[in-house]
Design a protein around this nucleic acid. Structure first.
Lengths: 338, 338
DNA sequence: TTGTATGCGTTATCAG
DNA sequence: CTGATAACGCATACAA
């Protein structure tokens, strides 16, 4: 490997002079600067950032931990994060927890040992608090994105889940629905709680009854339990609409409905949180509350960098990003009862 | 920061002994091992992999460079790569070239300085050869994924683009199409050349004429040039089908057709390479040649690791992964002419 | 403007 | 089984 010493020897200067040329620090005569630069080119020298990190105690690496690398919401978020990091001269280490605490822990251990300068973190659940505590112990700055964790103080970039859910429900109610099932994420995830709150708020606003039996806590993965759905559809008074708490749930539920011969929206309406990537373009079908996923990532990294630079002397910040109701075709008037 | 010396002091042993406990190397008495372990726990010690990398000359990091982090093909590939890397105890550094050589170069410089142990690389075009040459100069092992580069010898994981394109065309021909437009990626990208070859091969097989005026080299980004499409649609003898060389092109083209009131597949058929993520589940519409994207990533990392372990003493390998024709609804019989 | 000595946290090597 | 020393490649502090 070519080191600064190799350059130094060839240029008849000291290693320090080479270092200064690389970092544009200190004063150097134009002559030696040129000579050193030329020799670096000749030898294809590239600074070893491992060594640099060791002495400077910074890696110029940030890390992004998300819960599902195949979900368009998170990939778009990742894109925003990557763009921001790249522009700021940082590399991005990705991790994928699959909504699992065990994978999340492994990943946190990894980044701790990698000594990344900071972490943009979408926690799998409230139980992620332990992992965040580890980050605090080791003084790794982090920003929470998409989800918050009770009892953890941190900078955050969050969506307006409650309002978004409320709007989705308002839309359904305005179409005439009075009985709406909610297929939600786990109650241990803040976004699921907030969407639930928006759901209930809408019911109350319109003096609609809350019925526990059409509210399911399923989790944010694809829905894979036809029996539960069947039970709801076979009720004497079945819901006329389904509010799926995220895109994966909506897509898989619509799949089941289709397989069963139930047409959307004619027989039942479906709405959800988060958009569905290319699907919304190919066939603008799903009525959704879209979150600005790219902004989540971009502003998350910006906030993280601000925290890194200003250390403790900055107030904690929470950025709330609104969602937008996009009315398409998956929700219509409820069917007439015979 | 807690270091190996802090542990050593507390345990009344040397730093080396601590190091041996951490790495399970050398023989150590059960007693001191336990003591050291306990103290590491107490102090929340986590090894500094930066320092370790410096002396061991390996970072336990691999890098994945893709051309579009928002395309479901690449995100699924990324997922496969992340899974493989994680299982092998490696971290994954992601990069996104946006199909641009300039971003690709920046990224290559970054990983060179980061001293990753290897790189899984989806080159932006044939001109990426320069960047690959840099990797060779610095002896960074790499595996090409999805695309090959003429003149560059390397391990590769590639798709069967020619066969896949041929099958897609066969399907169209079997439906009765005799005039099919091709909207392709740039000729400087190997997959575009191969898909083009499959297209021509199918024409020849069925003794259909090749018409230059309905073959467009557009690039793999979303199609954004209505005029070009208009020109083709307005021909006296317009094509009855469009073969879009990737998912982005297909989706955006279908969008334009819809806006213009042209219905697919009634008035014109559309097929493409690569699936469209959630869209294919929400509404199984597009007839496509699906590539095993996850395998691309997973096997790419496996191959890369093999190369890293066995160095030069291994023959170069090329893995060819077949695509699968999935017939859905976007292609039907050509319309009857009046 | 340039150079010397030192240390970042870890492991390889050799000695005991 | 354990320890002392040097080295990985670079940058900081100080000296010249």
């Amino acid at each position: 490997m070519v080191t600064i010493y190799d350059i130094a020897k060839r240029a008849n200067v000291s290693a320090m002079t080479v270092s200064r040329v690389i970092n544009n620090s200190g004063r150097i005569s134009a002559g030696t600067r040129e000579k050193v630069k030329r020799i670096m080119e000749e030898l294809n020298y590239i600074p070893n950032s491992t060594a640099r990190s060791l002495v400077k105690q910074e890696t110029k690496m940030l890390s992004l931990l998300i819960t599902d690398i195949t979900n368009p919401f998170f990939t778009t978020l990742a894109r925003g994060a990557e763009d921001a990091a790249h522009q700021l001269g940082y590399k991005l280490l990705f991790g994928n927890s699959d909504e699992k605490l065990s994978k999340e822990k492994e990943y946190v251990d990894m980044v701790l040992s990698t000594r990344v300068d900071g972490l943009l973190f979408a926690p799998a659940s409230d139980a992620s608090a332990d992992h965040l505590a580890m980050l605090n112990v080791h003084r790794i700055p982090f920003v929470l994105v998409d989800r918050e964790v009770p009892g953890v103080e941190a900078d955050m970039v969050l969506g307006e889940n409650r309002t978004g859910a409320f709007q989705l429900m308002e839309h359904l109610v305005s179409l005439g629905h009075r009985r709406v099932a909610l297929i939600n994420g786990f109650g241990t995830v803040s976004t699921a709680r907030e969407r639930y709150a928006g759901y209930r708020e809408a019911l109350e606003r319109h003096r609609l009854p809350y019925d526990d039996s059409i509210v399911l806590e399923y989790g944010y993965n694809r829905f894979d339990d036809p029996a539960k759905l069947e039970r709801i559809l076979r009720m004497p008074d079945p819901p006329t609409a389904i509010f799926a708490a995220n895109n994966m749930l909506a897509v898989s539920i619509i799949g089941y409905l289709r397989d069963r011969g139930v047409s959307v929206p004619e027989q039942i309406s479906v709405v959800c949180f988060e958009d569905v990537g290319m699907a919304s373009e190919l066939d603008p079908f799903l009525t959704v509350a879209v979150q600005p996923a790219y902004e989540f990532g971009y502003r998350g990294i910006e906030l993280l960098m601000e925290r890194i630079r200003r250390k403790e002397e900055m107030e904690r910040q929470t950025i709330r990003l609104p969602s937008e109701l996009i009315v398409r075709k998956s929700a219509g008037a409820p069917p007439h009862r015979l």
